[in-house]
Design a protein around this nucleic acid. Structure first.
Lengths: 105, 105
DNA sequence: TTCTAAGTTTCTAAATAATGAAACAAAGAA
DNA sequence: TTCTTTGTTTCATTATTTAGAAACTTAGAA
């Protein structure tokens, strides 16, 4: 049976994955892999209003995946755990391979 | 600017992470790391109705993270991409370290 | 001070996801 | 065949997430 420890651990991990479960947030993380970016640039790149961009970024920050730093009127965001992205491509490879298999290709 | 390729790739990855974004599904994947399990055993372990367990498992399957096989009246599920779990612990480590930092510990 | 640009927060509406119960389907056993 | 066990699907309800617009805050420039 699932005990309290299991529950805590699974909730923590699920919470982290939830932060990754949106295309815009993945896009932001990929951008941040190269450099720091401010909110307005990221919003422009993604083609969404800055209020939405700000909310996505604060979710990423809350999950511990990015960090921010004020610079004048701007706020620069940067990656804290670059391994998260490597992991994404590893998993994607496995998932794609499996999909091909299930489609009989 | 985000192009069509970016969009497709980010959507695919976000979709995979969405499948991971639930404590019960993480718990199931951890169980499947060791062995194959049938739906009713997994449901019992998690303490949820089998209908719910079945739905969580079909989400994992749809995302390409698990595979199933009929055995009599039972259906056994197994992991397709064990690296997904290693990735989870790697990311968790990074995230926890960052949280500690932000709390000033 | 006044104006402007950058970010965040609040608000409401719309879309998605999660839940449990019950109906349904399939494979074996009695 | 009839009963039982295992899984899946459907349904209605609830909860969560996402969205954009507008209000608000802050820092710096004019």
């Amino acid at each position: 049976m699932m005990n309290e420890n299991d529950k805590k651990r699974c909730e923590l991990r699920a919470h982290m994955f939830k932060a990754l479960a949106h295309p815009v947030r993945i896009f932001f993380l990929e951008k941040l892999k190269e450099d720091s970016w401010c909110v307005c640039k990221l919003a422009e790149e993604a083609g969404i209003p800055k209020s939405a961009a700000s909310k996505h970024l604060s979710q990423l920050k809350e999950a511990g995946l990015v960090d921010d730093e004020k610079k004048g009127t701007m706020v620069e965001y940067c990656l804290t755990a670059p391994c998260v992205l490597e992991m994404a491509s590893c998993a994607e490879g496995a998932v794609l391979a499996n999909r091909r298999k299930n489609l009989g290709l």
